[in-house]
């Protein structure tokens, strides 16, 4: 354990922890753009600079491990001036189009610009201009909005193990590139989208469906494989506009292509909307009462004539515990047979 002092507060933290983590532990907020709790430190955005007694210059708190006796100052006129300069530099190379940006309201850069009240920019100059040309169906890559924090590169390598993207070129011309700058072709897990602090990476299917205003978030469980990832539905006008996952979930915020981008079937025009009864080989729409009465009559008749074991029920691994419980109870108690199964085997 290391005894340290942060902004005059004494605290004891585990060795190996970074200064940033230690500060957050005791509720001291340090701004950061490139740091992400699930990824190895990068130290590129320079917003989390702090002063440490005995160090010749400010250091990034996200990369500096604590050591016993450290005295840390997280905010001072110098530190705030540096943060402001860094933010201003980032914004001098960032499109000013928050009004049409998909991430407005959920953008860390926008939040920081607001916090520091940055409207004028001392450094206005040339901005990077790129043609948007990635034809993949899932992920919109707007590299003009990219602040090169490297989170996407790290998550793709460290978490997903895919290494589909990396830094290319140098200096001001640096950009995140795919191999040979082709269209992104990866597992499309969208982990990069989830960690992007700006609007550089967004879901293509999100576009123009709804940002923050009026969007309701509901936590639930993904309905694809058996992993059971916790997801958050973003809903506007009874329509799912995004699926995300929070960092503090058991799946640590990570999802796969199906979980993150495979939600549009819900609003598919193919959905069944009315009970249907087949007559002479054709389906016709019916009311619920008509349909349920018909089912009840037919099942009663078969049960009466052929016995309950002439009836069987197949339930689904897609349905909830409650539905499955009710279904088998229905087959066993209301119909009177144990002919009930589901697709676990298939």
């Amino acid at each position: 354990m290391a005894k340290i002092k942060i902004d005059g507060i004494d605290t004891t933290v585990a060795e190996g922890m970074t200064v940033l983590e230690a500060a957050r532990n005791i509720g001291v907020r340090i701004p950061a753009l490139c740091q992400h709790p699930k990824l190895t430190p990068f130290g590129g955005c320079r917003l989390c600079l702090v002063e440490i007694k005995g160090f010749p210059r400010p250091v990034t708190s996200c990369t500096t491990p604590v050591s016993d006796g450290m005295e840390i100052v997280t905010t001072s006129p110098t530190i705030e001036r540096l943060r402001r300069t860094v933010l201003e530099l980032i914004l001098s190379d960032h499109p000013n189009d928050c009004m049409i940006c998909e991430q407005a309201g959920a953008c860390t850069l926008q939040e920081l610009a607001y916090e520091y009240g940055l409207r004028e920019n001392r450094f206005a100059g040339e901005r990077r201009v790129y043609e948007k040309k990635d034809g993949n169906p899932f992920i919109e890559r707007d590299l003009e909005k990219c602040i090169l924090c490297g989170r996407c590169v790290k998550v793709c390598d460290e978490v997903q193990g895919v290494e589909a993207i990396d830094f290319g070129y140098r200096g001001f011309d640096s950009k995140i590139v795919t191999s040979f700058e082709d269209d992104l072709n990866c597992e499309f897990c969208g982990q990069c989208v989830s960690v992007c602090p700006t609007g550089a990476l967004t879901g293509k299917q999100w576009a123009k469906h709804g940002r923050q205003m009026g969007v309701k978030e509901t936590d639930s469980i993904c309905s694809y494989c058996g992993t059971g990832c916790t997801i958050t539905y973003h809903v506007k006008n009874n329509d799912i506009v995004r699926v995300t996952s929070k960092e503090d979930t058991l799946n640590e915020g990570w999802l796969c292509v199906k979980g993150r981008f495979g939600y549009k079937f819900v609003s598919s025009p193919d959905r069944l909307k009315h009970p249907l009864i087949k007559k002479d080989g054709e389906f016709r729409e019916a009311t619920w009462d008509e349909a349920l009465d018909l089912i009840a009559d037919r099942l009663k008749k078969i049960k009466r004539e052929d016995g309950p074991d002439a009836i069987a029920g197949l339930s689904s691994a897609r349905c909830t515990n409650e539905e499955n419980y009710a279904f088998q109870k229905f087959i066993r108690a209301a119909v009177g047979t144990n002919n009930v199964d589901h697709c676990a085997r298939l």
């Binding site: 990068f42 190379d93 830094f167 140098r170 200096g171 001001f172 011309d173 640096s174």
Partner: peptide, 9 residues
Amino acid sequence: CGKCVPCRI
């Protein structure tokens, strides 16, 4: 190299 903001921009 383009990694950190003050140097890159």
